[in-house]
């Protein structure tokens, strides 16, 4: 809806009173979005904010393609209602920049992990969250953390190698 100030401010205020405007911080930017609070976070990111890194895969938190961070923890954005989000959301777009890639993104490039690439933003977000929690994961740790992110191309061996490379970079090796 295209409305101008002060009508816009009044409109948003009324919608907030009605509970239809949601405040959301994504990749450091604050947004007030005119959506129903029950809308899945993934829908808001993709359709309302144009942040299309998180992908729609299954819609029921079974595949991990939609993985984003809320205050650093990986969550399935397809299954979280936007009105319930309290923390700061980070998507693949906010993890690093083209000039300064996150260690996981750099390792992904180095190992040429992606094949079709559809699941990869979710994979990278899951890996980044894992390394925040466990800076030196074993193969078993990686399997346990990443196995709920599905890759139909079967890039799992390269994913594991890239996670290990990223871990060693983050540890200063």
């Amino acid at each position: 809806m295209q409305v101008t100030f002060p009508a816009q401010a009044l409109y948003l205020w009324e919608r907030r009173l009605e509970g239809y405007t949601v405040k959301l911080t994504v990749n450091g930017a604050e947004h007030f979005i005119d959506v129903e609070p029950e809308m899945p976070l993934l829908w808001v990111l993709r359709d309302e904010l144009g942040i299309t890194g998180p992908k729609y895969g299954c819609g029921i938190a079974q595949c991990g393609a939609c993985t984003v961070h809320i205050d650093g923890m990986a969550v399935r954005s397809c299954s979280v209602e936007v009105g319930a989000v309290e923390g700061e959301v980070t998507t693949i777009e906010g993890l690093g920049t083209p000039d300064s890639l996150h260690a996981v993104q750099a390792a992904w490039v180095e190992h040429q992990v992606a094949q079709c690439g559809y699941c990869q933003s979710g994979q990278i977000m899951a890996a980044a969250s894992l390394l925040e929690m466990n800076s030196d994961p074993t193969d078993e740790d990686i399997d346990a953390a990443m196995s709920a992110n599905l890759c139909r191309c079967g890039t799992y061996p390269r994913i594991r190698a890239a996670v290990k490379t990223a871990a060693s970079r983050m540890n200063g090796a």
């Binding site: 938190a61 079974q62 990986a74 969550v75 399935r76 894992l130 740790d141 346990a144 953390a145 990443m146």
Partner: peptide
Amino acid sequence: ETLPCATCHL
């Protein structure tokens, strides 16, 4: 330790 249940059960 690795993947919180709340990643999906949230």
